[in-house]
Amino acid sequence: MKKYITLAFLAAMLTGGNAFAAIKVVTTTQDLESITNEIGGDKVTVDSLARGYQDPHFVEPKPTFILKLHAAELLIAVGRELEIGWLPPLVNQARNTRIAPNGDRYLDASLTAKILEIPSGQITRAMGDVHPAGNPHYWLGPDNGRRIAQAIQKKLSEISPSDAAYFAQRYADFDRRLAEAEKRWQAAMAPYKGVKVVTYHRSWPNFTDAFGLNVIGYVEPKPGIPPSPSHTLELIQEMKRQNVKIIIIEPYFDSKTPNSIARETGAQVIVLAPSVGGVKEVTDYFKLFDYDVNLVVNAIKQTGAK
């Protein structure tokens, strides 16, 4: 009896697996996970390695990630050296060459995106943790969400040509909803074009660019270098001079220095979600901007920032 149940169970597992045959996608961040879900629908299963409230530069290369990558049929990475400290050793041990860079099941989502802050001329590490290939936080511009989605649609259609129409239809739907949402976000931010802000890390150029905020300084003296007293004093003076009232930080940074800067300058510290999953409410790519735009607008209203 037991044997039959086991057999039946096995058979169900096997046929079930075949019937679904969802493409197993692994993404490095939850933003890519969300967009992949938008495009792939029920033809994919998506798993993200990093969580949205984690600093994506410093993810621990845990062996459990090796297992996920081993089984992955597609790896989608942010690229631009965001994951350079942790993804390469994982991919090297995954025993899955197709998902290695230049493999046919690897997608660098940045290749078709609009990348800002590509350094020109000589760069050295005296400039801090610079990204020679440009700012990797590009998903924070909604227009790049569309570009990422299109790249994913193309890749998924390549993997499963029979579902190409399905992916195309889902992309068109995502595109339409994103265009509507963008109108909403732009309308909310329209009165505040040119408002001056300070951010902790250089995570937000695509966001501030999309919504017309003016970043006049950073809490970090240089990318990846923690705040120093002298830089903090300079920043406070500059903020006072320019009357800056908003400090944007990521949930994974210590808020001590930003808070003391805020006390000195009468500014408000807002912890934006840098990624899907950055805070509990932000469960998809649309809610990411809903949440952030809402926080920024409220803070500007409260502080009367200009």
Binding site: S110, A113, S120, A133, G134, A151
Partner: peptide, 14 residues
């Protein structure tokens, strides 16, 4: 936005 731009390849050379 509707015509995804191809990213400018990294121009930085050490």
């Amino acid at each position: 936005a509707d015509a995804p731009a191809v990213a400018q390849p990294p121009a930085a050379a050490p």
